[in-house]
Nucleic acid binder design. Structure first.
Lengths: 209, 209
DNA sequence: CAGGCCGCTGTGGTCTGACCACTAGATTTC
DNA sequence: GAAATCTAGTGGTCAGACCACAGCGGCCTG
């Protein structure tokens, strides 16, 4: 009975109990938590209630379960929240425009950060890659998003991009020179020019072949 | 059996099925969804699996259940999930920084859009509101985020903001004059000045008292 | 001794059926 | 007509039963 926190739903109590337990035992990502049956025992609730709590936390990406092995604490970075919200409410028409715009904005933000903080080596490495390989426009910006060391922004970009890709956003042919020009400006820390180059590229793309 | 999406966990299939159902029947916030027993029947899965899916969605704030009445789609805004995650694994320093930075970036993006597209009436209405009421800094930017008519960006802001709020981001005292100055620049379509004002405000806030 | 096979045990995954608590609406009663 | 009552339907919870899978240890075989 311990500390029944007055919330009428058991599974919420379990969530709270788990939180306390994790805190008390200072469990870290990767650590294993007790089995469902033991939790059910320890908290004096049915196993199904424990499972409802665990499933909820799993969908949040806070834990990970492996059949036959157990349940483990997971690194919070990976949470699927945004993704889920996306799959749920992202169906409209107008949303397509918003997607494109948001993608653009985030990419520009990333460019700004990179122009400011990325090391010359990183940028040069990217230039070498541009020269060497064939690639998709997405790949290029994925690398930009990664260079920016803000993991959250990177993650948002990935999500927005994956949705944007399902729509038929024109994939015009952008030439390697354009990318190289952009990178050169980044190397020179010339934020304005870089963004300008980016915007020109956008225009070319939507004009399309 | 329909479209078992190969994910080994039934409850995830149910989540997906629910999503499809909501989309197909174009259910809106406030609408009622079928009872657990009927869903269990319709999807050919046990009721417990349905419940695991529902509990997860509930914790996300996507649905709301009322005992004796049923389960309803919810206008996901103030999901209490936020506090949860906050108390959970959000102590990570790096995550906090990323959150703050991302919030800043998005707010600036919103300012840019508003400076460009918002009508003078909208901005003036906001000025009147600033003058009239007491408000929280979040409220102000919520309104900015809404003015920008990009719903996706607004949604991202809401999420990022709600997470950021759980951390103890200093809530310095920003004066009404600052907000008014910012809005005035927006009214004049002076993007640069507006952002400059915004950044100064940020600095004051973190300097705090 | 080395290598592989086999079965035991523990874990998550799922289903079923049974109650309970509660709500709302129909029904009865005054 | 209004109040009290009953009833069907809904979520909340539990216990118990299987299944599928991973890991471990012991046994057999070469």
């Amino acid at each position: 009975m311990a500390g029944r926190t007055s919330s009428s739903k058991i599974y919420l109590d379990v969530v709270e109990s788990l939180r306390s337990m994790i805190e008390a035992d200072s469990l870290l990502p990767g650590d294993k938590i007790p089995s469902e049956r033991e939790l059910s025992d320890r908290f004096n609730v049915g196993r199904s209630s424990v499972r409802e709590a665990l499933r909820a936390l799993e969908l949040l990406g806070l834990i990970e379960t492996r059949r036959g092995e157990g349940t483990f604490i997971r690194d919070f970075q990976e949470h699927k929240l945004v993704e889920l919200l996306g799959t749920f409410f992202l169906q409209d028409k107008k949303v397509q425009e918003d997607l494109a715009e948001t993608k653009r904005l985030i990419e520009i933000d990333c460019l700004r950060i990179v122009a400011f903080f990325a090391t010359a080596e990183d940028i040069k490495r990217l230039m070498a890659w541009v020269k060497a390989d064939m690639f998709h426009d997405d790949d290029f910006f994925l690398r930009i998003a990664i260079l920016n060391r803000n993991r959250l922004l990177e993650r948002i970009w990935r999500i927005v991009n994956s949705y944007a890709r399902t729509s038929e956003m024109v994939q015009g042919n952008v030439k390697k020179e354009d990318y190289l020009a952009l990178l050169t400006y980044l190397l020179e820390r010339d934020e304005e020019k870089a963004i300008e180059t980016y915007l020109i590229r956008i225009r070319n793309m939507s004009k399309g072949e």
